[in-house]
Amino acid sequence: MKKFFVLTLIVITSITIIAANVLIPVGPTVFAFVGLLEGKITSEIPLKIDFWRSLDQVNAQLIAGTADVVVLPVSIGASLYSKGLGLKLGGVFLWGGFYIVSKEPLSSVDQLSSKEIYTPQGKGQTGDILIRMLISKYNLQNVSIKYLAQTEIVPLMSAGKASIAVLPEPFVTMALKSAGAQIAFDLQKLWFEMTELSEEVPITGIFISTKVEPSQAVKILQAISSSLKYALENKNEACQLSAKYLGGIGQDVLLQSLSRTKYEYRSAKESKQAVLTYLKIVTEIEPSVLGKLPDDDFFAY
């Protein structure tokens, strides 16, 4: 009976799939997948790409076993792994794109003391980690962090109800164009100053369900990498195609935002040291996100 149970577990946790269900966030990361969405790139393993709108949706689909690949902020994916939700890092493809934008003149980081700063989503996500690290490293005082969806922050700035925000592209470009904001600080450069590592932050990763057979996972990752390569080599077309998935964000905004965004696909193994360094900082700033750093098994691909 014991041998039968072990064999059954193996079958459940690693299966050959006919088609992979891929969940990507509603937002600009569609740029990396538009080649697949629009049939410009083909995948040896058929991919059904759908959009997630909340982390509750991601959790529900992982528990139900209806998600094979999920695109998530690196810290969130690592958190789900630590909670036993059966995800491993396949690769990282977004390494830069966060900025502090302001409607008031700011010439030094110290001037952020006693300011109200809006940041996307909630605690433990990329913008939150970067601004809280900045507050700690520069010993900023009385900073009030307000959490709001990034789609809501730009209209708030346009209406004069918010002055300073941490934003990713293309929302930075939108704030410059429609809210009269300016880029005050490049958070990638500040990351380098604070860590002395590089001007790259492992922002967004591709996470593979442990139930996907590893050889199939590799083929899926190859297709995603090819899709990003297509987009970077055909920026005008890719931005035009991406815009239809992003109501309200036009081709021109997406195209302009690319000059301040770093897309590059790197496997989990290639990204391992950068990811571990980032996650160590995440655990120091917001211990509830992870609890502990992921082990080697997390970096399976």
Rank of each mutant, 00 (worst) to 15 (best):
F98W: 15
A159H: 05
S107F: 10
K123A: 13
V172S: 00
E152L: 12
N139Q: 09
G84Y: 00
I153N: 09
S136K: 11
T119L: 05
L94W: 13
Y81G: 01
V166Y: 06
V166M: 09
G96D: 14
K88C: 00
F171R: 01
S75L: 07
A181N: 04
I129T: 06
K146S: 11
E116H: 07
L134S: 01
S163I: 02
L106Q: 08
T151A: 08
G91F: 05
L112E: 04
L176A: 05
G97W: 15
D186R: 03
F185D: 09
L89P: 00
Y147C: 11
Y138K: 09
K189H: 10
G91P: 08
L190R: 15
A159M: 11
S178I: 02
K123I: 13
A149Q: 08
V109G: 04
S136R: 12
T173P: 01
Y118V: 07
A165H: 14
K103H: 13
S136Q: 12
F185Y: 04
I76L: 05
K189N: 12
A179D: 07
D110Q: 13
I76H: 04
K115V: 05
S136T: 02
W191V: 12
A149E: 12
K115T: 08
S82F: 07
S114K: 04
L167W: 10
I135Q: 03
E104F: 05
L80T: 06
S102V: 15
P73W: 07
Y99D: 11
L134C: 01
E169Q: 14
W95Q: 14
W95T: 15
F98V: 13
K189L: 12
T126Q: 06
E104Y: 07
F171I: 02
I183D: 01
V154C: 08
Q111L: 09
P73F: 04
S107A: 06
L134A: 02
E152G: 05
A165T: 06
D110T: 09
V143P: 00
L112M: 04
K123G: 12
F98G: 13
G97Q: 15
I129F: 00
L176K: 09
A162D: 07
N139E: 06
Q125M: 10
L148Q: 15
G160S: 06
K115R: 13
V109N: 07
L106F: 12
L94S: 15
I100D: 12
Y118I: 06
Q121V: 05
S178L: 08
T119W: 04
G122T: 14
K88G: 01
D186E: 02
E152F: 06
L94Y: 13
M174Y: 01
K83E: 14
S144R: 15
T126M: 08
K189R: 15
A78F: 08
K189W: 06
Y147D: 14
L87P: 06
T126K: 01
I131K: 00
V92Y: 12
P168T: 07
Y81Q: 03
N139I: 00
G127M: 06
S108M: 10
P155E: 11
V154E: 11
G90N: 03
L80C: 11
G180Q: 03
I135S: 00
K88V: 09
I164Q: 08
V74N: 08
A175M: 09
S108A: 11
P73D: 11
I145H: 13
P105F: 07
P170A: 02
W95M: 14
S158P: 00
G91H: 06
